[in-house]
Design a protein around this nucleic acid. Structure first.
Ligand SMILES: [Mn+2]
Ligand SMILES: [Mn+2]
Ligand SMILES: [Zn+2]
Ligand SMILES: [Zn+2]
Lengths: 147, 147
DNA sequence: AATCCTTTAATAACTATTATCATCTGATAA
DNA sequence: TTATCAGATGATAATAGTTATTAAAGGATT
């Protein structure tokens, strides 16, 4: 891990009150040192090369910790369960990042996506999908009730 | 199931060479008759009220069949595995609907999303996420090679 | 009604993720 | 430095979600 990345890692851990453990350092490095959108299993395989005795559960736990702290992002807010949509009309979705509820948003509620550049050669465009992410009414209400 | 929905169902089955079974009819109805983005488990619970002996595997198989035929859509192209993104800069994603690979797309490659209406009251907007869906270079190549 | 191919139900198997808990370690202060 | 301890780890059991298998049943076609 380069010095700069290492310092960044220490800083982030301090900022979020996380012990800067060996394991966390390697997990962080595995993600930051190369571009990509890796699965926990892939991170595990990578880290194991340096820390052969690391546990997969440790990888999961720390990825969750990092995401929760905002150090990393998850690509999709609704992996984990398969959801089917019978609405055949083109439309968008409101997605609650808290309870993961999904609500339709009329197609015309958003201006059409405009591409400013050519896509990478070979990529055959099918469609644009927009997700409007935020906290839904129910979750906002539940949140304020607690305080 | 209303007559109209029923006819639509028969038509779609014929069009895709699918036997119009009892089970398929109820599964289709469970999705089409009420708005929502249901999980296989939820569909299963709903259909079981009419067909108590239906198997969960049948629900899964037919949802897959329907999606494959284009009669229904899946909400997210990358359910099933949790993917982490260490790219802290705002950016978009190219997603291959075939192999599910994910590639970064520079934020400025797309014009900013423009909201034309007010969002439902109570929804606290966090951000817009755009996914550019299509077939990636590798998959296109593999596809053409077969013919 | 007879035939054939598809579909189904039941259930085992598998994959991804989370919980549990005894042990260990990084951070802090003496 | 060393002692202390909350928090982190590794091992593994448990759970959730999904897919494979297979014998029996049911649509479609004749
Ligand atoms: Mn929808
Ligand atoms: Mn990305
Ligand atoms: Zn919510
Ligand atoms: Zn692809």
């Amino acid at each position: 891990m380069c010095r700069e990345t290492y310092n960044e890692f220490r800083r982030l851990c301090q900022q979020h009150n996380l012990a800067a453990t060996h394991q966390r350092q390697k997990i962080y490095e595995a993600l930051v040192s190369r571009p990509g959108h890796y699965s926990p299993e892939e991170i595990y395989e990578q880290v194991k090369q340096d820390l052969p005795s690391i546990s997969l559960a440790t990888v999961y736990k720390n990825l969750k910790t990092f995401v929760h702290a905002g150090m990393l992002r998850e690509v999709s807010p609704h992996h984990g369960s398969w959801r089917i949509d019978a609405n055949r009309h083109p439309h968008h979705h409101l997605v609650c990042t808290h309870c993961r509820s999904i609500t339709d948003l009329d197609f015309d509620s958003l201006a059409p996506v405009k591409l400013r550049v050519k896509l990478p050669t070979g990529f055959r465009l099918e469609k644009f999908t927009i997700e409007v992410q935020g906290i839904c009414k129910a979750c906002t209400a539940a949140e304020t009730k607690q305080h």
